[in-house]
Simulated assay, not measured.
Amino acid sequence: MAKKMRRYTPDFKENAVLLSYNRKNVIDTSIELDISPKLLSKWRAVYRKFGNGSFPGKGRKRVYYEDKKIFELEKELSESQLRLEILKKGIKFKPQGKDALYNFINENKKKYPIGIMCEVLGASTSTYNLWTKQPTSKSEARVRLLKETITSVFYEFNQHYGCIRITRELRKQGFQISEGQVSFYMKQLKLRSKVKKKFKITTDSKHNLYTSPNILNRQFKTDKPSNVWVSDITYIQIDKRFLYLTVIIDLYDRKVVGWNIGSALSTKTTSLPAFRMAVKNRKVKDGLLFHSDRGVQYANKLFTSTLDKYKCVRSMSRKANSIDNAVSESFFNSLKRELIHMQGRLLAPTEMRMEIKDYIENWYNKKRRHSALDYKSIEEFNAEN
């Protein structure tokens, strides 16, 4: 009768090798463990080469120990990245209720494992399975679609929009819905537009330079571009110091036609470069009314002579009366509420310049819906007129 071949577990092999090192004698160890010295020597040779990865078990590939560690770390990293990706995409559906959350899981089940999605998003796998078997009524499907779209618009526009602007955006997409309905669903979804914060106004009007009368007189609407431009300057706090933002806005479409960020309050770093940008972006008409506050940056000879060169009519707010320049003040209010105050830290100068440029050029002048334009974006308004 043939002798039955013994099978050794991975742990036995590794322990036998370690014991042989401790005994410092292969023969004694082989006798003690009742295995052949030749077999133990073979195991020792394998262990010297592969270390802790020497005996992975039947059917598994032998790898170097360091390679195994790297593989396991890479696997952990890959799983962490997958979970983060799911969380980023799915977290916005949690406030919308189980239907929206399970719908997200259902739509992404071919891309991500259902179990991991449920675990990451705090959902029950068994409840999800029951949900997939229950038919959804047309009314429930419509409400779900509305909530999903409201949430999508809310986050697409960086949480800046309240119910009025979201309603306009939904109507543009073909939904028949009232502001009251949007407000109701936003409360259910716990979606709140970013809170307004007060900001400090800094205008140096204590000078002996000539100041123009308030010709604009709070007439903030005009029927043609380059009829009236309004301008103002505000401070932006950054890491360890301040920057100063100057804007020039055309009252026709509320577009910021010129702007500049400077590190000082001189005319050459505020009103003058902003005006130069404005005349490059939009043709100046003779008699253009240029309205500002009474600050020295607008009243000095360097700037007024530039306005005279372009045959502009000067207008200035009354002393200590910010409402006379309400459009510029409103822009700064929006900028600080929607961008500056939402930063988690004080930005470096380069970072802040990039953020403001993106806000003005890509958000305010293109996508943002303006109440003065019947909640149209500037691009939509100009396309219709």
Rank of each mutant, 00 (worst) to 15 (best):
M1I: 09
K3W: 10
K4F: 14
K4Y: 09
M5E: 11
M5V: 14
R7M: 10
R7F: 15
Y8L: 01
F12T: 02
N15V: 12
V17Q: 00
N22G: 04
N22R: 15
V26I: 14
V26Y: 12
L33H: 13
P37G: 02
K42V: 06
W43F: 04
A45H: 11
V46C: 05
S54H: 03
P56I: 07
K58V: 12
Y64H: 15
K68T: 02
I70G: 01
F71E: 08
E72T: 04
E74R: 13
L82T: 09
L84R: 14
L87V: 02
K88N: 09
K88F: 11
G90S: 09
I91K: 13
K94R: 12
P95C: 09
G97F: 10
D99G: 02
D99W: 12
Y102D: 07
Y102T: 03
N103D: 12
I105P: 01
N108G: 02
K109L: 08
K109C: 10
G115H: 10
G115R: 13
I116M: 13
E119P: 07
G122Y: 02
S124Q: 06
S124Y: 07
S126R: 08
S126I: 08
T127A: 15
Y128N: 06
Y128P: 04
L130F: 15
T132C: 09
K133T: 08
Q134K: 15
Q134S: 12
S137D: 03
E140H: 11
V143W: 03
R144N: 14
F154M: 01
Y155R: 00
Y155L: 11
F157S: 03
N158A: 03
H160A: 15
I164D: 05
L170H: 08
Q173A: 14
Q173I: 03
G174P: 12
G174L: 07
F175A: 03
Q181A: 08
M186C: 08
L191I: 06
L191E: 02
S193W: 07
K198W: 08
F199P: 00
K200R: 10
K200A: 05
D204E: 11
H207T: 06
L209N: 15
T211Q: 13
Q219D: 08
Q219C: 01
Q219Y: 05
F220D: 00
F220V: 01
K221I: 04
T222G: 00
P225T: 00
N227A: 14
W229M: 05
I233E: 08
D239F: 13
L243G: 01
L245I: 07
I249N: 11
I249L: 12
D253C: 13
N260H: 15
I261L: 09
L265E: 06
P273N: 05
P273Q: 02
F275Y: 07
M277G: 01
A278I: 04
V284M: 04
L289T: 06
F290H: 09
H291N: 03
Q297F: 07
Q297K: 06
S305H: 06
T306D: 02
T306A: 07
D308S: 11
C312P: 06
R314P: 03
M316Y: 08
R318Q: 11
R318F: 06
K319Y: 14
A320P: 06
I323F: 13
I323N: 07
D324K: 00
V327W: 04
G344E: 13
R345T: 08
T350N: 10
R353P: 01
I356F: 00
Y364P: 01
N365Q: 10
K367F: 03
D374W: 04
Y375I: 02
K376W: 05
E379P: 04
N382L: 11
N382W: 03
A383V: 00
